[in-house]
Design a protein around this nucleic acid. Structure first.
Lengths: 134, 134
DNA sequence: TGCATATAGGTGTAAAATGCACATAGATGA
DNA sequence: TCATCTATGTGCATTTTACACCTATATGCA
């Protein structure tokens, strides 16, 4: 059975305030790795300083391994430090290229956001009497 | 077998210039319905005027039905017009509430974007010599 | 009349992404 | 020695998405 809220509607298209955040995990991990080489546990922790709620560990680690398969990061084990071994990631050239593309697409993103915001706050909301179209 | 690009990497975390667009389909459909009642085929078409590439028809129609299940739109058949019958959608009060929440969350969204952009364009990119962390 | 095409709204199914619970293992401190 | 923190994962079910395909109404045209 699917989850239902107090209105009797299920919640599949609830905004959730950070549904959009998913797409940002990869580029923000890359940004962090551009500043300092790091490992999953630390990256997951620092994620919140970007205003993004951390995804669960399983998914997060899997994202990192996928990024490596995609060639945008590379990793090696750090057994020097105390505690359990860390898989330390660095950004690759392909990762830099990815960031460049992402940043360029932000302009388009901004346009969509502005269009949305203007339409929402604008006085263009129809009155109840022109409630049909032909 | 998974698709591979010319670099031998698969493409799972490719930006695609509009990966972020997915999250915008629901709110933008709602915005359009706030202006005029409409049906899937038309909404899909108008989507592109918002700078969003349309999703494929199957997914798009399913999104609309899901939105109805969630109670943020309602629909009825229009058999008056010529051609195949149209399922005409209107936004509900819950839909308006959804839009309100979404718009409020845009502030947070903007913050993440600005943080990202500043970090990317800033001079904070490390030099090759401080290439390790302790 | 017959057939292509545009409009309109879907379904079936497989692949991909995600959440959640759990597993493993080294180090630290009571 | 036993709990806890750090650190990285796996297994499985659910959810989301893409892709191919199907149905049906109307229009134009040969």
């Amino acid at each position: 059975m699917t989850k239902e809220n107090e209105n009797g509607n299920n919640e599949k298209s609830k905004p959730g305030m950070d549904a959009w955040a998913k797409n940002w995990h990869v580029p923000i991990i890359l940004l962090m790795l551009r500043e300092w080489n790091s490992y999953g546990y630390e990256l997951m922790d620092k994620m919140t300083t970007f205003g993004l709620s951390a995804m669960n560990p399983g998914t997060f680690y899997r994202t990192l391994r996928q990024m490596e398969k995609d060639g945008i990061v590379s990793s090696s084990w750090d057994t020097e430090t105390t505690g359990p071994a860390r898989r330390v990631y660095s950004i690759t050239d392909a990762g830099e290229a990815y960031l460049k593309l992402w940043t360029e697409s932000l302009n388009q993103y901004q346009k969509v956001m502005n269009t949305f915001f203007n339409l929402y706050t604008g006085t263009s909301k129809r009155s109840s009497k022109d409630d049909e179209q032909k």
